[in-house]
Simulated scan of single mutants.
Amino acid sequence: MKKVAIVTGANSGMGLATTIELAKQGFHVVMMCRNEEKGLRALKDAISQSQSSSIELIQGDLGSFESIRNFASAFQTKSEHLDVLINNAGVVTVKRELTSEGHEAQLGVNHLGHFYLTQLLLNELQRATQGRIIVVSSGAHKWGKIDIQDMEMSRGYNVAKGYGRSKLANLLFMQELTSRLEGTNVTINAVHPGAVSTNLGINRKTEFGRIFVNLLKPFFLTPTQGAQTAIHLATSNEVASISGKYFYQMKEDTMSKLAQNPHLAKGLWLWSEQQINKSI
């Protein structure tokens, strides 16, 4: 039976590089992309570079709970199992923006969207021989803080604080889900990809930030280099029994103390569930 993987944010950067490499390794890869037009271009590119026709695009916007539900439903009509879920997509918003449900966009997309998507696909992951969830976090989590009383950052929004908070949330989600998956065939681990040259930080509508990112490109890893640890976690037998760990450059790394706080992880989980339940 062919292994199946979903890669979120697969139309560019590390998401596209991950899609290509997994397809090369024989996976059937589902690309989750917000923009269908860009997704179709990326699909064509991925098929060409991987020399595999076992790649498909399903449109899905992590900033909309309805869109996430539609994506999951579309996937479930085509596949009964899911071997690998790579929660890769991410946004950086210089100004405070909101998702469809009114959540601060960096937390809403980077954490809440992936939280909900993962919940909806847990049954398919458990039907795999061994399901693996890979969360793309960042070293930026180390400056992140979470105030459950002001999750929408309605006071004093700051892009760096917002991004760090969303990446901390990724790790707290991993910690809590690790305990909930104990005794199952599903593992979850997180990745710090390093400083990678991607479209992160470029405004999706205005292209603001493109010149700055292009100037810095020579100093960054390529998307293919940045994707290597996630691919390792998705495919290697060496990590088959490992869960709840944070990896950098293919090795286990240390998370901040806040990221290891079980009470904060549980509090964030409960808040996240409440936000989803409001939308149903």
Results as ranks from 00 to 15, higher is better:
G15E: 06
G15H: 07
G15N: 08
A17W: 07
A17P: 11
A17F: 09
A17G: 07
A17S: 13
T18H: 11
T18M: 07
T19L: 08
E21S: 06
E21N: 11
L22S: 07
A23C: 11
A23N: 15
K24A: 02
Q25D: 09
G26T: 14
F27T: 12
H28G: 05
V29P: 07
V29W: 00
V29A: 10
V30Q: 06
V30W: 03
V30A: 02
M31H: 08
M31R: 03
C33H: 13
N35L: 08
N35Y: 10
N35D: 15
N35S: 13
E36S: 14
E36P: 09
E36C: 08
E37S: 13
E37R: 11
K38W: 07
G39H: 03
G39T: 15
L40F: 11
L40W: 14
R41H: 12
A42V: 13
A42H: 13
A42Q: 13
L43D: 00
L43G: 04
L43T: 04
L43M: 08
L43C: 04
K44Q: 14
K44T: 12
K44W: 02
D45Q: 12
D45A: 06
A46K: 10
A46M: 11
A46W: 15
I47V: 14
I47W: 06
I47G: 03
I47Y: 08
S48R: 12
S48C: 07
S48D: 12
Q49I: 04
Q49N: 12
Q51S: 13
Q51M: 15
S52G: 09
S52Q: 12
S52T: 07
S53D: 15
S53P: 05
S54E: 15
S54H: 14
S54V: 11
I55H: 11
I55K: 06
E56I: 03
L57V: 12
L57P: 09
I58N: 05
I58T: 10
Q59T: 15
Q59E: 10
G60F: 08
G60N: 08
G60M: 02
D61E: 10
D61R: 04
L62R: 02
G63K: 04
G63S: 07
S64K: 02
F65K: 02
E66W: 10
I68W: 00
R69W: 00
R69M: 05
A72I: 01
A72M: 01
S73D: 07
S73L: 04
A74E: 13
A74Y: 02
F75H: 00
F75M: 02
Q76E: 07
Q76V: 01
T77H: 06
K78N: 13
E80K: 06
E80L: 05
E80W: 01
H81M: 02
L82I: 03
D83T: 03
V84W: 00
V84D: 02
V84H: 00
V84G: 01
I86E: 01
I86C: 05
I86K: 00
N87M: 01
A89R: 01
A89G: 10
G90R: 01
G90K: 03
V91Q: 02
V92Y: 12
V92N: 08
V92R: 11
T93E: 09
T93C: 14
T93D: 10
T93L: 08
V94H: 13
V94F: 15
K95C: 03
K95W: 02
K95A: 08
R96N: 03
R96P: 00
E97Q: 11
L98T: 04
L98R: 09
S100M: 09
S100Y: 06
S100E: 14
